[in-house]
Computed example of a mutant assay.
Amino acid sequence: MGARESLREAKRIVVKVGTSTLAYGPGRMNLYNIEHLVRGLVDMANEGREMILVSSGAIAAGLGRLGMTEKPDSIPEKQAIAAVGQGMLMHIYEKFFAEYGKVAAQVLLTRENSVRHNQYIHSREALCAMLAMGAIPVINENDAVTVDEIKIGDNDQLSATVATLVDADALIILSDIDGLYTANPATHPEAEIIHEVPEITPEIERLAGGAGSAMGTGGMMTKIEAAKVAMNAGVTMVIAPGARDHVLRDVLNGEEIGTLFPAKESHLRLRKSWIAFGKRIEGDLVVDRGCEKAMRQCGSSLLAAGIVSAEGEFTRGSTVRVLTKDGQEIARGVVNYGRAELMDLIGRQTKDFPEALLQEDGFREEVIHRDNMVLMV
């Protein structure tokens, strides 16, 4: 069964919708699109699927309620507007969900809910309980209290985190962009949509607007980052046009809509999903070709001998990314050494480690043990 066809069997689905789909502009909500979204979610739930919505739009709704037409620059003002708008947005959702016979459950998350393992577990259990009760969770980041240090990030990243958290089968990102194109369709009329991306390569990242890109496709890089998380957590992701009629039904019927990012492996055990996608990334380790091959083909632990360089201010127990020399992420994991310690070990065989370290109680041969690592390739 192909990746598209497998969507027909998807049981638990996370749907993310952006502000551009929910609003015409600051303070002007697109009730037509919102009603069609809700109707699609309820219809899929009535079919026997479990649906979760990650929704933007709180600030757009708040601006309208406060009679403002432009989003301010200061964080306190944005937080105040989000606090007003979140209630307004939920009121709209509750009204439409009630019209179609479903209960909406508001959930506000912050990075702290995923960084701490016990909160990660509790968040998962609460969401699963809502689904068991027949409610549809409507999730947003708690913008009224979050600052950069505890933000998950954009809502594309939030949706991928939620999909990982609840062990979803599929993540559908509804956007004003139809999918990933060979170039920016706004400036390149000849651009063609890419219907399937089996692997997030450096070329795909550049195409989406990453480092070295000359033709970013407008807001696509955050979606590629979300896809990287989803695919490696065993979740199939689709970017699809949010304004299209019956878009959820068509995607889940396996039709060739938007861009599909097929899941790479079976669903991760809960602890591994937390290691890779719940904890904050504190640094990067760049490895040589031999180490890259051993990790890709054998799932080997990461040893100091294969490390070329280390970036970031991480400490023992932090989560870091493992990168190839050309910048492709191949793994994430929990390090057994802080950066200061590791700088003395890079490129060295274990037998050449300082004698004091070798005799240390709790000494670890591996920089990252395979049990504390998730491959991203």
Rank of each mutant, 00 (worst) to 15 (best):
I173K: 05
K95Q: 14
G306E: 10
G258T: 12
Q359G: 00
V235Q: 03
R348N: 08
L174N: 09
L180G: 07
T319R: 13
L248S: 04
E192W: 00
E360F: 00
A80M: 13
C291V: 02
E70R: 15
A160N: 07
E265W: 04
D361M: 03
R116T: 03
K95M: 08
A10L: 02
L285R: 11
D371L: 06
S175M: 02
E255R: 15
I121V: 15
G216N: 09
G242A: 06
I173A: 10
D250Q: 14
G338I: 10
G87V: 11
H91I: 00
Y181Q: 05
S300R: 12
K102W: 12
Y32C: 04
A211R: 14
D284N: 13
K272G: 01
K102N: 08
A227E: 07
K16C: 06
A243Q: 12
V38W: 03
N336G: 14
A340F: 05
Q349C: 03
S273H: 02
E282I: 07
L207S: 07
Q359C: 05
G312Y: 10
D371F: 01
P241S: 07
A23T: 14
A263I: 02
N46F: 02
T236H: 05
T110H: 06
K293L: 07
I81G: 05
L270W: 03
T164W: 02
R364G: 00
M343F: 00
K102V: 11
A61T: 14
V320T: 05
R370K: 14
I368Q: 10
M133F: 13
A82R: 05
G299Q: 11
H267A: 13
I200N: 05
R364T: 02
S56D: 09
S6T: 08
E355P: 00
T319Q: 13
I194D: 04
L302E: 09
G212W: 07
L89G: 08
V320C: 07
A227T: 04
K223E: 04
D176S: 11
I136N: 06
Y120C: 09
T19F: 06
F96G: 01
M1K: 07
D167K: 15
L66V: 02
G283V: 09
S300F: 04
S123P: 02
E205Q: 13
I139K: 06
I346W: 07
A183K: 04
G299V: 08
E5H: 02
M88W: 03
G254A: 07
D344H: 14
G101N: 11
G290S: 08
G48I: 09
E329Q: 14
C291K: 12
C291Y: 10
G347V: 06
T222K: 02
E112I: 00
V14I: 12
G338Y: 11
D250L: 11
A304T: 11
V308M: 10
S266G: 15
S114M: 13
